[in-house]
Amino acid sequence: MGTRENMIGMISINAERSVIKLGDVEIAYHCDKFNTRIFKGFEDTLGFEKARDLIFTSAHNTTYDNLVKIATGIIAGSKPADVIESLFELYKVLGYGNFMVQDAYENGGRVKGDPSYMAEGWLENQEKWHWTNRTQGVCHEEAGHIAAAWELAHNLKKGSVRVIETVCKAAGGPYCEFQIEVL
């Protein structure tokens, strides 16, 4: 089986309980409406920077902890580039978008998201809900997922990297781009 098929094979559905799992980890499906509304609620309540940091940190921590549980087979003994490629394939399966490493160097790297889930969701709903055009990015949870993947691939502790979205399609960019910095 290929990587994608292996990832898909990790998803199990208990119809009796309406519970879905990825390996041993409980997951649930939500749509662009809910996730963008939640994000907007966070921004309206906290302001852009605090909302960005909160969503990034929450996604980063929970993704890191859960990947440690379910992806040991992918991580152990593999080269960083291979681990990242596999984890990004998992993110594709989960519907987060298509992420590709553009640059990797000693103290960080650059990842392109084309597309990225939150940006697609934002653009899908912006006109309908009369939200004004943005100048700032929306893909903070994707940044958190990327941070977790980068740390695990490079055998770094949780919290070792910061990921900032520098280009976002929801803010007029042609795609989304993330800068990774090892702290």
Binding site: E26, I27, Y29, C31, A59, N66, G95
Partner: peptide, 12 residues
Amino acid sequence: GVILAANTSDFL
């Protein structure tokens, strides 16, 4: 008609 994504309940 919507765009779905699966997240861990720990994150949600």
